[in-house]
């Protein structure tokens, strides 16, 4: 199983690294990160916290752009160009193909987040003289959330085109972070346990303004990641398995 998933993931990584989009997005985000300390309403005394908060937001947007640009058209493109024929005809299960594709995108998204976080850390050190190791906790949360987003995009792309995939994924992202807004009323509170919330990955407060993310919370976050990702890939694998190529 892994002997088939791993080469697919590696091929996705190789393909992604040859595309310019990853480098361009990270570079552009890095330029923006250099500008953070020059924000006009940078409050005295809270500079480091504001820097971390904006840096996390930039990292999140960077990761979203990288993940969606890689995930939305990967499967539809391979089906259209028929490159998937050679893979499936070799005895590779369709779900193995999907998981391998997801794995490659997840790794590239992780590399992009790591590269950007490193840049943020250097900028933070240059400006404030401290190594903001806590940024890596935020990076982990963003990376895991991108894993969920990539799984959702790959699953949707098993049966839909890139426009639908991007729209659906952004909608889920919006809804996933709107539980408090959408289910804020007392009557709606009963639905909260069933709401597909991505708030578990929102660690802005402890990273930017607090003392970091507790280990137990990180473990729970990984659990949420495994649950959502697994569910999305199972649904995607089932849908892709029923599709004519």
């Amino acid at each position: 199983m892994m002997s088939r998933i791993y080469p697919i993931a590696r091929a996705v990584v190789a393909d992604s690294l040859r595309r310019k989009v990853v480098y361009v997005v990270v570079l552009f985000a890095a330029l923006l990160a250099f500008a953070i300390p020059f924000l006009p309403d940078y409050g005295l005394g809270v500079q480091e916290a504001v820097f971390r908060e904006v840096a996390l937001a930039l990292a999140f947007v960077t990761a979203i752009v990288v993940t969606l640009s890689l995930a939305a058209n990967r499967v539809p493109g391979e089906a259209e160009r028929r490159t998937v024929y050679n893979v499936v005809a070799k005895g590779v299960s369709r779900w193995e193909y999907l998981v391998g594709t997801w794995g490659g995108i997840f790794l590239v998204a992780g590399a992009a987040v790591a590269a950007f976080t490193l840049i943020e850390q250097v900028i933070g050190f240059i400006n404030y003289g401290v190594m903001m190791w806590v940024l890596w906790e935020g990076a982990l949360a963003i990376w895991l959330e991108m894993g969920v987003i990539a799984a959702l995009a790959v699953a949707a792309s098993a049966v839909a085109g890139p426009v639908v995939v991007v729209t659906l994924t952004l909608a889920v992202l919006f809804v996933g972070h709107s539980r408090s807004t959408l289910l804020g009323g007392e009557g709606a509170l009963a639905f909260r346990p069933f709401f597909p919330s991505l708030d578990a990955f929102n660690v802005v407060n402890p990273v930017a303004h607090g003392g970091g993310v507790p280990l137990e919370y990180l473990a729970g976050m990984i659990g949420v990641f495994v649950g959502f990702t697994g569910l999305a890939l199972i649904v995607g694998g089932t849908l892709f398995g029923r599709r004519d190529l």
């Binding site: 190789a14 028929r82 490159t83 024929y85």
Partner: peptide, 21 residues
């Protein structure tokens, strides 16, 4: 089933490959 295709070689009409490779 995938296991039934492990000893097969297939060349589709106009084979395509990932262009970056």
């Amino acid at each position: 089933r995938p296991a039934g295709r492990r000893h097969v070689g297939f060349m589709p009409e106009q084979p395509y490959f990932p262009q970056h490779l």
